[in-house]
Amino acid sequence: MMLENRSKGRTGVNSPASFAKPDIDERLYLGTIEKGLLVLDTFCANPRPMTLAEVSAASGLNKSATQRVLYTLRALRYLTHSETTRQYSLSVRAMDIANAYLRSNPIVEATYPYLLEANKQSKETVNLTELDGSDIVFISRVPSRSVMSSYVTIGTRLPAYATAPGRAILANLGSTERNEILVNSSFPALTSYTVTDREELFERLDEAREKGYAIANQEAMLGDISTAAPVFGYDNKVVAAVNIAVSTANWTVEKVEAELSPITVEIARQMSKVASQYRRV
């Protein structure tokens, strides 16, 4: 599946991320569920209270369908509604699905001690990420005590091409799978440092595969340098990446590569031994 970039429309709301659908059996496919999840995805793309009109504009559903979906999700307690502002918001119950995913993913629990060890060695923020479409998603995290990095939390999603963990994963996918994700993708500049040239990006991926780690310098976030190494699971397939993220106020790319990349590579190697025990669908 290929994740399309979110876009902001005239109303100032972001369209939810969308994926190319696989071949589906129309006899089994429920369009009503698709509409409900589309509305929930709209709140993920716009993490703030929204009116019916805003949800309709962002999701692309007409107002009548949007109203029915909002009413249903409110009745099921996935949304709350303010009678004063007439805005809808995600409820605390919406966290249940994400929490269930983290609890059901054995790799998250099994590798957490290794994140702690990497944090202890580096005294910096350490993350575990997975690839979803053309994005990476942060699924586990041990923050640095000395640097506040509130812009990233569990569940944060970033374009893989502009991040060290994304490149570490992409570099170790099979060529067919990697090309399906990247060949038809665009690479907008997230910062002035983002690599947007397709040929240069593929060269960075080849380099990451050869070295065993990737480095990104302020390409997704200004002031952030990250180094990452791939985590391999069952059948030696890449399943995640571990990365250490630091501030440019205290680190240079050269220092990160010399001192932190070896830590990520070794921790990823240890994690791979654990992750290879779990066969995931």
Rank of each mutant, 00 (worst) to 15 (best):
S261H: 10
S272R: 06
T227N: 01
G233D: 05
D235Q: 09
M221A: 14
L70E: 04
Y78N: 04
S272T: 08
N119R: 15
K273L: 10
L173A: 06
C44G: 00
P159L: 10
A249S: 14
Q87I: 01
P16R: 03
I97H: 07
D206T: 06
L37A: 12
D206M: 11
Y71S: 09
I263F: 13
S134Y: 09
R86L: 12
A45E: 10
A268N: 01
Y88Q: 05
T194E: 05
S272K: 08
V13H: 02
A98K: 01
N99K: 09
L30K: 08
M271W: 03
Y78T: 06
E130I: 15
Y278K: 04
P230M: 03
R86C: 12
V183P: 00
R167S: 05
M1G: 12
K273H: 05
T51A: 08
D197G: 03
N105P: 13
E210G: 00
T11Y: 05
S134C: 12
A58V: 04
S276P: 00
R279L: 09
R209Q: 13
T194S: 15
A20P: 00
A53Q: 11
E4W: 05
V265G: 06
A20E: 11
A241C: 04
L260C: 05
L128Y: 12
V183H: 06
S175V: 14
A208T: 07
Y161V: 11
Y278R: 06
V265S: 14
L79K: 06
E199G: 00
V238A: 03
A75W: 00
P230A: 01
L28N: 09
K21R: 13
I154G: 11
N46A: 03
A275E: 06
G223S: 04
L115K: 04
E109Q: 13
A20R: 12
V137A: 10
W251T: 13
I181C: 03
E54W: 00
Y114D: 15
V39R: 05
S192G: 02
A53C: 00
V108T: 10
R48P: 03
I181A: 01
I139A: 02
L37Q: 12
G166A: 07
M1Y: 07
R204H: 08
E207C: 02
K211Y: 11
P16S: 01
T32I: 12
K255W: 01
A45Q: 07
L158G: 03
I181H: 01
Y114M: 15
V256P: 10
L158D: 09
V152Q: 06
T72D: 02
V147Y: 12
E199K: 11
M95R: 13
T156H: 10
F43S: 00
L3G: 14
V242T: 15
T85L: 09
S146K: 10
S186V: 06
E26P: 03
P143W: 08
R103V: 04
L173I: 08
N14Y: 15
S146G: 00
V147R: 11
A228R: 00
S91W: 00
V281D: 07
L70P: 03
E199M: 01
V39P: 08
Q67W: 05
G60Y: 01
L76I: 07
I136L: 12
N46T: 02
A189F: 01
V256A: 08
A268G: 05
E257W: 00
Y71D: 08
R157F: 02
Q218E: 15
R209W: 05
V183L: 11
K35I: 02
C44E: 14
L173T: 10
V256T: 14
L170N: 01
G212H: 09
